[in-house]
């Protein structure tokens, strides 16, 4: 009985409260747009299209979240994802026949190559940050420029398009009616959630993000843990890159540059503490959904794109204010509640 109570209390503590709050927020946004634009927004077509757009941003955001939980940040996610997509696209186009036919083996090889490249990019970040102790924001700013430069240099800035039909079918297909990228996103979210909540690596990530020095004195291999977060971040970025390439049937060195800021906005919106130590995957996924709904809702209402950008910023400011205002009250309340049990 007591354990059950503890569980209940722990699932409502701090960061998880943010999830509840976000759920309410999501519902609110959904209702508002459905009310004002039921004919365009509240349609199966629109929801399907959102379900295709959400995954890539969500996966990139989860990547940023991992580094942010340790108190760092990864700015090179988009550069990594483009590099991985370009490599895969290059292998695909080199190995397909005139009429776009390609064997499944080559598709697999291309994807694996992209993923490997993502791991290498993440490994470089890990090396700079964990081993050489360079500040994450500077290190990943440097690698962002480096990866981007390599991508532009090798392609002369031209995108690789016309990828094989079979490859494009993955990113545009559905799985029991649900867009395949969305299914992949859910799987990735579940896996990352499992890692950070149920593994020693995850627990260490939270502890290191709370107090790096105490983590060093607690001998938990802080450098190794931090290295892992950047390697996983690179891996996730390459997944996002492959999904984008498949969906667009193209890869480009400068695709989705605005995604970096968007991902950071989402992660903070999703309740991850920018100083590290607290955050949930659910929060990040929900935040992605909220922002996508706002974007698509504005589209449906035929608002100007610039207006959307301002609104996106507005949402962030609003949520931050809400967080600050509610933080103290929520904190003392949740402590009190758990004291009573």
């Amino acid at each position: 009985m007591n354990e059950l109570r503890n569980r209940f209390a722990s699932s409502t503590l701090l960061s998880d409260r943010k999830v509840t709050q976000l759920m309410g927020f999501t519902l609110l946004v959904l209702l508002i747009f459905s009310y004002f634009s039921s004919d365009i927004f509240f349609t199966p077509e629109n929801f399907t299209s959102m379900a295709f757009q959400i995954p890539e941003v969500a996966i990139l955001s989860i990547a940023v979240m991992l580094s942010m939980l340790t108190g760092g940040i990864d700015l090179s996610i988009v550069a990594t994802s483009n590099l991985a997509a370009l490599l895969a696209a290059y292998i695909l186009t080199k190995n397909m026949s005139e009429d776009g036919e390609i064997s499944n083996l080559w598709i697999l090889m291309a994807c694996l190559a992209g993923i490997l490249l993502g791991l290498i990019c993440g490994g470089i970040n890990a090396l700079l940050i964990a081993v050489l102790n360079i500040t994450p924001i500077l290190a990943t700013l440097a690698t962002l420029t480096l990866f981007n430069g390599i991508a532009i240099g090798l392609t002369n800035g031209v995108s690789i398009s016309g990828l094989p039909e079979q490859f494009a079918r993955i990113g545009n297909g559905t799985f029991f009616g649900v867009p395949t990228p969305f299914v992949l996103m859910v799987l990735i979210a579940l896996l990352v959630g499992l890692i950070i909540n149920r593994s020693s690596l995850g627990l260490k990530i939270f502890l290191i993000g709370t107090n790096r020095k105490a983590a060093q004195y607690s001998v938990m291999g802080d450098k190794r843990v931090i290295a892992w977060t950047y390697v996983i971040s690179g891996l996730l970025s390459s997944f996002a890159g492959l999904i984008i390439a498949s969906r667009m049937s193209a890869a480009s060195p400068d695709f989705g540059n605005s995604y970096i800021l968007l991902a950071i906005v989402i992660v903070v919106l999703g309740g991850v503490n920018p100083m590290g130590g607290f955050g949930t995957v659910t929060g990040v996924v929900l935040a992605t959904i909220v922002l996508q709904m706002v974007a698509s809702g504005f589209n449906a209402l035929r608002f100007n794109q610039f207006f959307y950008l301002a609104a996106q910023g507005g949402v962030l400011v609003l949520v931050m204010i809400l967080n600050v205002v509610l933080e103290n009250r929520r904190r003392s309340k949740s402590i009190n509640k758990s004291l009573e049990s």
Binding site: L203, F206, T210, N211, F278
Partner: peptide, 16 residues
């Protein structure tokens, strides 16, 4: 500064 993860739970601190 060296011993505790102040904002984390007592439990997590003990098993760190």
């Amino acid at each position: 500064t060296q011993g505790l993860f102040l904002e984390q739970s007592i439990l997590r601190n003990i098993v760190a």
